[in-house]
Design a protein around this nucleic acid. Sequence first.
DNA 1: TTGAAAGCGCTAACAG
DNA 2: CTGTTAGCGCTTTCAA
Lengths: 328, 328
Amino acid sequence: MSITSKDIARICGVSRGTVDRALNNKPRINPKTKEKILRVARELNYRPDLVARSLAKGETMSIGVVVFDIRNRYFAQLVNAIETEAKKYGYLLNITLQGKDPEMELRLIDNLVARRVDGLIICPVNKGDAFEKYLKNLTIPLIVIGNMVSHDIPFIGIDEYRASRDAVKLISSKKYKNIVFVCPPLKDREKENIYSHEERLKGFIDELKERKGIRYEVVDSWDYLNEVDRLLSRSDEKTALYCSGDTFALEIMKHLRKRNVEIPNQVGIMGFDGIDILDYITPRLATIYNPVETIGIKAVENLIRLIKGESIEKQLFIEYKVMEGESV
Amino acid sequence: MSITSKDIARICGVSRGTVDRALNNKPRINPKTKEKILRVARELNYRPDLVARSLAKGETMSIGVVVFDIRNRYFAQLVNAIETEAKKYGYLLNITLQGKDPEMELRLIDNLVARRVDGLIICPVNKGDAFEKYLKNLTIPLIVIGNMVSHDIPFIGIDEYRASRDAVKLISSKKYKNIVFVCPPLKDREKENIYSHEERLKGFIDELKERKGIRYEVVDSWDYLNEVDRLLSRSDEKTALYCSGDTFALEIMKHLRKRNVEIPNQVGIMGFDGIDILDYITPRLATIYNPVETIGIKAVENLIRLIKGESIEKQLFIEYKVMEGESV
DNA sequence: TTGAAAGCGCTAACAG
DNA sequence: CTGTTAGCGCTTTCAA
């Protein structure tokens, strides 16, 4: 057993209340007794039990985080930023991964709430009214990142719709005659929250509707590599593949490399997210840089405001950046 | 305020002890009262307060993790594996990042201990006797990953020395006349624990000592790109760059690509770790595959054994794999 | 089968 | 300036 404040009180011949005042820099204590208590505490290498403190104070100084998976570059960068920022304020992270499993997500949120984390940051896979209601009934503050659930629940992300239109503008400026939006997650739209991809899709379509003379279509299959083969063999028009995620773009590039298809000479490619490993890839992938670090930092800032009972703006859109690259 | 077991007791007209028996499937309770309590609990959406439970039971069902940084692929994969495995046993993770700051590492470990995590998994940046003693004095079980601190402290990793010799064997088999070990972390050997890199260095040297006719040298500078330029301009022998980490290899490949140096025709490159993004890189990098998922899983398994008071083997070496690639 | 009471280690409120 | 008391919500022990 480790040493408690009671032990210190006994040894110093004072009450636990006095020990508390000394240890936590509270007023109304004799400097000499304070000094003595601090000395004894140090000598005995006293460490307060933070579990007990949490129970007494009703705060744990922890933030619960629920995301898909941190092998995913995007979430690795996000969680990294959240941890670094939270630490500055004395908060530690309870991080949990739902692996796109809606049931698991609910279980994890329940568990974190039961552990009395002071707030939650989630990138949800669930969606819909029931989920919205569930979140609203939580007793703790919450910030949603990426996949918006409703306009009523605090959200931080980028304006995916506008970013997607910008992506299409960039591609169009390169005189492609045919643009394909590659977005496998659309396949899962029934069961999963794919808000961000749906916004990107809308932006893609709206932008192209306004432009004449460019054909476009959508690939919404996880078998997208074969789809790409089929599309490219079928048409001899200058085609660009606009991918709703850098990872899909990288997979396609790897695939085309095997087929000796040259990028961007024979086909153009654009991604979305601006994950950090693009640094190592040739040709440099055109993409939308999603400021994930900033999003993480803002999420922590806003969450802490909520924890303190302060108010925040319900929707916070961070500026993204169009990265030209060499692949389109 | 949320509802407590006391409320349930009051409503059901029983004592808190009985409520506990019902809720936690304990014996010696009348099935009918149990049923009633469970029903009421469900109706009121009762959730036990896990902080209170932790205080009462003396266990938190959390595991503390301290690593460098999870933008680093290696740690992202590691933490991902640890989380997934720990969750199976009902443990959540408190993950913290020390960013190679020794002071920070100590503060984080202290904090986690104060939060009464049931065990720790760390990849330490500290080293030496004082640190070893500090770790031994911790009141909770601990597993060290990667950077061994001492043979007395439970460790999981690969046999870096042997792996490094195997790497050199692979390179040698390709008839290089000059092999350069690129290992910037050596620069920090005074202040940081770079056990794994030092083992790799030893393996490199020992293997080459046994082979005649191959020149070798070591680059231990963070300015390694310029060093590489200098080395390559100086010699016209067939040279291979053996990097103590895939990231260094990727940086060099990117650098050489700009200089239009062909790999492996003009210079060979080999990495270490086998991080997942190599999938997207051409030419395929030769490397040592470090089974980080397995290491994470084993770390959790062993830690839980320690938590339960069971015994484990102090040193656990997982099998690595030599990946031939096309870069050497 | 159930209840009562004590305790986990800390904080907070009030009285002295 | 200091001590006392109660309480956070749960588990555990012992007695009934």
